[in-house]
Amino acid sequence: MLEFVPITAVVPAAVEALLDRAFGRNRHSKTAYRLREGVGAIAHLSFAAVEGGELIGTIQCWPVEIAGDDGETAPMVMVGPVAVDPERQRAGLGKQLMHRALDAAHASGEDRAIMLVGDPEYYERFFGFTAERTARWRLPGPVEPRRLLARGSAVPAIAGMLGPRVTVAA
């Protein structure tokens, strides 16, 4: 039976092994990984799909922000990676994981500014992500501008650098 559980309920090494199978061992060199360096995933927005005790999919969400050239900063949630075991891909599990994360973001009020790097034809069609407000964003590495997508009423259409959102404890 397929179950969705908080990603914190899964052994981190199992998550890493799944990510390696889904994206390859060189995945850490991707720009998206630089956007989340030094921060942990947002636990209440990150999930695992488990079936028969086996991890078959994950989705993680991360705290990021854009530091605008005008001095403005805007917090956002970055979705990804969405990983599905290669033997289970193309069966809708990634879509289920996305809905779970987006529903959780909506329930917690964190859906006003969500971004990801991904296929615009897929993420716009099924989830409403577009590149309409991301044209002037810069990232700490290469990215195809058409793949830099966002959704939500508070997505900033400003020029600036996107990076991890590190919160400082008082």
Rank of each mutant, 00 (worst) to 15 (best):
M78I: 00
R146M: 01
A131M: 05
E110N: 11
P164C: 14
A67E: 15
G94A: 13
R100Y: 03
A113G: 09
G52K: 06
R147C: 02
P145Q: 04
A48T: 09
L148K: 06
V79P: 01
G71H: 15
L148R: 07
A135M: 07
G38I: 09
T130V: 01
L148P: 00
V168P: 04
P164H: 08
P63Q: 06
L102A: 05
E16I: 12
E124V: 01
V11E: 15
A41M: 10
Y122E: 04
G163L: 07
L162F: 11
P120D: 02
R125T: 12
H44M: 07
V10W: 13
P12R: 11
L139K: 01
T73M: 13
L149E: 00
G40W: 02
G94I: 05
L162H: 06
L2D: 08
I66F: 04
T8K: 05
A43G: 14
A104Y: 11
A105E: 09
A48C: 03
R147I: 00
R112N: 11
P12Y: 10
L97I: 07
G40P: 13
E121V: 14
A17L: 07
P145M: 01
R147M: 03
A32W: 04
L45N: 00
T167N: 12
H28K: 08
T134I: 03
A169W: 05
P140H: 11
G80T: 07
E16Q: 15
P120W: 10
V11H: 13
A159C: 08
F23Y: 10
D111E: 11
K30C: 03
A154I: 03
V15G: 08
G80E: 10
A169F: 05
E144P: 02
A22V: 14
Q60W: 05
R165L: 15
G92F: 05
R138K: 11
I114P: 00
V5P: 02
V15R: 14
A48L: 03
D119L: 06
M98Y: 04
V64T: 07
H99Q: 10
E3Q: 14
R34A: 15
G71M: 14
Y122Q: 03
A104G: 11
G40I: 00
Y122V: 05
E144G: 00
E132K: 12
E3R: 13
E3T: 14
R146V: 06
T134F: 06
G92M: 05
A9N: 14
E121T: 12
L18C: 09
Y122M: 04
R138F: 04
F4H: 04
A91Q: 13
F127M: 05
A154Q: 12
L2T: 09
R125H: 15
L18D: 02
A17K: 07
L45V: 00
T134G: 01
P164E: 10
G163S: 09
H99V: 08
G53Y: 02
W137K: 01
A101R: 00
V15A: 09
V10I: 15
